[in-house]
């Protein structure tokens, strides 16, 4: 597909453009967090329990006098980092297994799909909690835990795409012209199955951010990294006295997830134009 065509289709969805703007702002915040808020977000910046719009803290301070705004900016880093890396890891596992299952079919498919179902039968969040609890919380273990619980849907999607593309005539032509299985999977089938995978991956980033926040809320986040979920979790006991401590990080989560969903929908419109047209 031509690039300009892609952008035109994407821009037709106004929500998607809005999502992209919000997402850009969050990325900006994350990228320049240490410039905007040079002090460690864990350090005491001002008096505890300062309401929003006070002198040293735009969005107020928490019960230990830490700046909420600084926490949100630095938390954006953690959220985006975890969202992106865990999705990338889930993509690597899911697409590889799905591609192998769909391409080879038969027993390979059976074996891989039973393995996938094994993961799907265990509730996502419970499995993630157990994994993080076993392997002591750190950024790496959280990323791995999220990836391990989120790859099955990607595997199923990749498998379905490969199953249908495998019987297409251009793939059969590749077989009859003697191309190797690796070439066929990587060069012939994968590029044609990417659109739906990209769309669900973009939505998965949002899910991963929510998962990370939930883990941190339960106190299973990385103890050295400031995170939105941790901020809400820590502030939940004082929510009646100091609403700002949990509302602002909460808003940050809502906005990020919303933006990612809007962008995902826009990608869907742009990458699967046939579906988009039939809906509109």
């Amino acid at each position: 597909m031509m690039k300009s065509e892609f952008w035109r289709a994407f821009a037709r969805n106004k929500g998607a453009v809005l999502g992209l703007v919000i997402l850009a702002a969050i990325v900006f915040l994350a990228a320049f967090a240490s410039f905007l808020f040079p002090n460690d977000p864990w350090d005491m910046a001002t008096a505890p329990f300062q309401p929003p719009l006070s002198e040293d803290a735009l969005l107020g301070s928490d019960m230990l006098g830490r700046d909420i705004a600084a926490g949100i900016a630095h938390g954006a880093r953690v959220s985006l980092l975890i969202g992106l890396t865990s999705t990338a890891a889930a993509l690597a596992i899911g697409v590889t297994l799905g591609a192998l299952a769909g391409f080879h079919g038969g027993r390979v498919d059976d074996a891989i799909m039973r393995f996938t179902e094994l993961f799907q039968t265990i509730p996502n969040f419970v499995l993630a909690v157990v994994l993080v609890a076993i392997f002591t919380p750190s950024l790496t273990t959280i990323v791995l835990a999220i990836a391990i619980v989120s790859w099955p849907p990607l595997a199923r999607l990749a498998r379905a795409e490969f199953l249908s593309l495998r019987t297409r005539e251009f793939v059969q032509a590749a077989i009859t012209t003697g191309q190797s299985n690796t070439t066929i999977i990587l060069r012939q089938i994968l590029p044609n199955s990417l659109s739906p995978i990209i769309v669900s991956a973009s939505l998965m980033v949002a899910t991963a951010i929510l998962l990370e926040s939930s883990l941190s809320f339960l106190g299973l986040g990385d103890p050295n990294a400031m995170s939105w979920g941790y901020m809400i979790g820590a502030a939940r006991t004082v929510i009646r006295q100091a609403w700002w401590m949990s509302v602002f990080p909460g808003l940050a989560i809502v906005l990020t997830v919303l933006a990612l969903n809007l962008v995902g929908e826009g990608l869907n419109d742009a990458l699967n134009p046939k579906l988009a047209r039939s809906r509109g």
Binding site: R168, F170, A173, A174, T176
Partner: peptide, 11 residues
């Protein structure tokens, strides 16, 4: 081999 469907047989 030459295939049937000219729309599906080319990547």
């Amino acid at each position: 081999m030459v295939f049937q469907d000219p729309y599906a047989s080319l990547n």
